[in-house]
Each structure stands twice: as C-alpha cells, then as structure tokens.
Nucleic acid binder design. Structure first.
Length: 211
DNA sequence: CACCTAACGTAATCATTCT
DNA sequence: AGAATGATTACGTTAGGTG
C-alpha cells in the first residue's frame, strides 16, 4: 500500500469564504521583484536519505483530464482542485503542484479564449461570481501541534517527505500543511534575521553619530 | 546524455485570525 | 488598525524517467 497512503483528503472542514472580492484574476499583475531570488542551491546537505516524495507518474487518462481542466481554467480554486483530485484519484497537493508547473512552463496565455473580440458584454455581471475566492480554509494549529512542529523545526528545518509524513500523522494534519508550515517558518525566520542585522547596523550608526 | 517535468526551494503577497 | 501567520502565486532549481 505505498508508503504515502495518507491520501490527504482530510482537514478540509468547510470552505466558508467571507466574500472578499477584489482580485478575481489573482496574479494577473506581477510584483516588482527587483532582485533575483534564485532558489537556494542545496538546502539539505547531501542527505543520503530519501528526501523528496517519489515522483508521481500520471497516466494518459489523468493527464488528459488535467490538461482539459487547465485549458478551462489555469487558476482553479480549492474546491475545483479537490474535485479534480478525486476525479483522477490523487492528492490535492499534487494537483496544485501540477498547475503551478504547468503555468510556469506552458504560459497559460497560450489559450486566450476564442472570443476575445467582444470586450464589454456585461450581460450578467454575476456570472463571474461563481468562482469566488475559494481557498483552502485556514488551518489553525493547537498549541501542542505548534510545539511539535517547532521542535521538529529546530531539529531539522528541511524535513524530507518521510519526516513530514510522520509529523503530519503525529499531529493529525495533512502532509501538505506541514510542508507549508515549514516554508512559512523558514521564510519568516530569514526575514527576522535580516531585520536583526539591519537593526544592528543601525545601532552602530547611531552610536557613531551620537559621539 | 538530453529532454521533459514532478518536486520543492525562496520571495512576495493575499487573506484570516487574534490582540 | 496592526501583528501573526496560513495559503497561494511567480519564478528558479533539483532530480527521476525515458527516448
């Protein structure tokens, strides 16, 4: 039964979107991004362990459905992704990754719809409202869950798939949420550290000026 | 080996919850 | 209102499978 038999699927109580219109097409405009991030080279120092999850091999059938869905909408909401996950029998997180990669590689504007001639047509303004901002509902961690996560983080900020699965099992949360938690934690720690350095340098400057 | 692409990293930002 | 922090995006890298 394949090690990764978690199947996610859990953890999704209710959508409960509080209607917050304003972006609709999300990410249609890109951020300034003045610097070049360039993903880090190799976070996990030659760990001989199995770090990544094993590569998913989609069948032609699955791919057909994914591609079809992508052409319909390159930005599926959470419920759409979940529906797809069920339809092709995979985890929602795999769907998310697949869409991310697909958008990156095959510019999603390749299919600008056939009828872009008629611009303003506002026949029914509510037609677009179906999509809403359906995101996965925010997970809230209990203090004990957080403690477990934090402990694991200090032990290893870059847990491989096995560790993540184990943690997920332990605290009863989908593995994908654990992965996101670690990403956010690393990110905020970096920011904090950077700010710390800036302040230190400010202090030095102030001291110099005070004299 | 080259190519394609799933997995996964950072950075930025959106959105919700809490104080 | 603002701080914290979970979720999602763009973009870039790493690595597994195949011709």
């Amino acid at each position: 039964m394949t090690g990764a038999a978690v199947q996610a699927a859990r953890g999704g109580p209710l959508p409960l979107a509080s209607a917050r219109l304003g972006w609709a097409t999300a990410a249609d405009r890109r951020p300034p991004r003045t610097s070049r991030p360039r993903a880090r080279r190799r976070p996990q120092t030659v760990a001989t362990k199995k770090c990544r999850r094993s590569r998913t091999l989609f069948t032609e059938e699955q791919l057909k459905i994914l591609v079809q869905a992508f052409s319909q909408n390159p930005y599926p909401g959470y419920t759409a992704k979940q529906r797809l996950a069920v339809e092709i029998n995979t985890e929602e997180s795999r769907i998310q990754i697949w869409f991310q990669n697909r958008r990156a590689r095959h510019g999603f504007l390749e299919r600008p719809k056939k009828n872009l001639g008629s611009s303003k047509d506002h026949a029914s303004p509510k037609e677009k409202m179906q999509g809403k901002q359906d995101r996965r509902c925010r997970t809230s961690y209990s203090s004990s869950q957080l403690q477990t996560l934090k402990n694991a983080f200090t032990e290893n900020p870059y847990p491989g798939i096995d560790s993540r699965e184990q943690l997920a099992e332990e605290i009863g949360v989908p593995e994908s949420r654990v992965q996101i938690w670690f990403q956010n934690r690393r990110s905020r720690l970096r920011i904090q550290r950077k700010r710390g350095l800036e302040e230190a340098s400010d202090q030095r400057q102030n001291q110099g000026q005070d004299l």
